[in-house]
């Protein structure tokens, strides 16, 4: 029974649910403001993403008459609930150890592609040629970044070596780093960390990898036909997804807290997330443009995957 309450709490309040939504909207706000300042613009207030979502919830929903209505409506629900669930099972070092029975890296591996899947369903359900283009682009980009993601996961898991439980147990990964120092200071794991730094903009569609939703090319692709509350859900999905991917990198490479105080650790965790986002999303997208689809794919195959695989190989040999 306790595990039921624990799971509900994690899903609805912390670290998923309300906390993830609030953190996501805040990160999005900081991102927009910081990019604006880097481009010498004024930029919107920090709460602008929240206002955008609020406004969209009271707007009319238009569904193209050629669209598959059920899939069109279900796609944002799937995407948002998917990322909220991912946020709920994400451990926060020194604050939260994850939901009992779901502390597993493989669970994350299955949950992480959900938002991309939701966008693909949205793109193909909307029956617009731009949506179809967005669908195929989303899929190609996903294939590109899944490889370094899996390799990095395996590298971390092999490095930890399953001390005290399953090889993929999230709490053993956290405990290992509590004992041996964060992975980011481990020279063997540094290539994997860099690969994950490139994975963040890849999955968030920022900078070089703003390919599936490229505004001047495919007019936001899968999201083109969306409006009203459904679009608001996609915006929330994107915000929570941002939290999830930075929290993931924090959990895998630098989960260490600042002592025993939970509140201090939470602030420290948020600070790490913010710093990671500023590096991997904000500065990255302010200083680069967009690659063509095949160039983006080649980039991941040529640079990102070898980095992650190098860490995996080294970790395996030095096990």
């Amino acid at each position: 029974m306790t595990s039921f309450f624990e799971a509900t709490f994690a899903m609805l309040i912390f670290p998923g649910g309300l906390f993830a939504l609030a953190a996501g909207l805040m990160l999005k706000g900081v991102d927009r403001k910081a990019v604006a300042r880097l481009q010498r613009r004024v930029g919107p207030p920090l709460y602008q993403p929240a206002l955008d979502v609020l406004k969209l919830t009271v707007k009319e929903t238009l569904i193209p008459h050629t669209a598959n209505e059920l899939a069109f409506k279900l796609a944002p629900v799937l995407g948002l609930s998917g990322v909220l669930l991912t946020a709920a099972v994400m451990p926060i070092g020194g604050v939260w150890n994850g939901v009992t029975g779901m502390k597993d890296l493989l669970v994350l591996l299955y949950l992480l592609p959900l938002p991309a899947m939701a966008l693909m369903i949205a793109g193909s359900a909307s029956s617009s040629p731009y949506g179809a283009l967005g669908f195929s682009r989303e899929m190609v980009v996903m294939f590109a970044y899944e490889m370094p993601l899996i390799a990095s996961f395996l590298a971390v898991a092999v490095r930890v070596g399953g001390t005290g439980g399953s090889m993929f147990a999230l709490d053993s990964i956290i405990n290992y780093q509590m004992a041996h120092g964060p992975m980011i200071f481990d020279p063997i794991m540094l290539p994997a960390f860099i690969a994950m730094l490139l994975f963040i903009p890849g999955t968030m569609g920022a900078g070089l990898f703003d390919i599936p939703e490229a505004e001047p090319e495919v007019i936001e692709g899968p999201l083109l036909e969306y409006s009203g509350p459904l679009l608001a859900m996609f915006q929330l999905m994107s915000a929570v997804k941002l939290v999830v991917v930075v929290e993931l990198v924090v959990a895998l490479f630098m989960p260490n807290g600042l002592g025993g105080n939970v509140l201090v650790n939470l602030v420290w965790h948020l600070f790490k997330c913010l710093a990671l986002m500023l590096v991997a999303v904000t500065v990255f997208r302010a200083s680069t443009g967009r690659l063509r689809l095949e160039q983006g794919f080649t980039f991941f195959v040529k640079y990102t995957s070898p980095l992650a695989l190098a860490s995996l190989g080294l970790a395996y040999m030095l096990r």
Binding site: L38, Q39, R40, P216
Partner: peptide
């Protein structure tokens, strides 16, 4: 052109 390749910072700079 910079905006179309997604390089908005350069676009802003050129406009400035």
């Amino acid at each position: 052109m910079a905006h179309l390749v997604g390089f908005d910072s350069l676009f802003m700079h050129a406009m400035e």
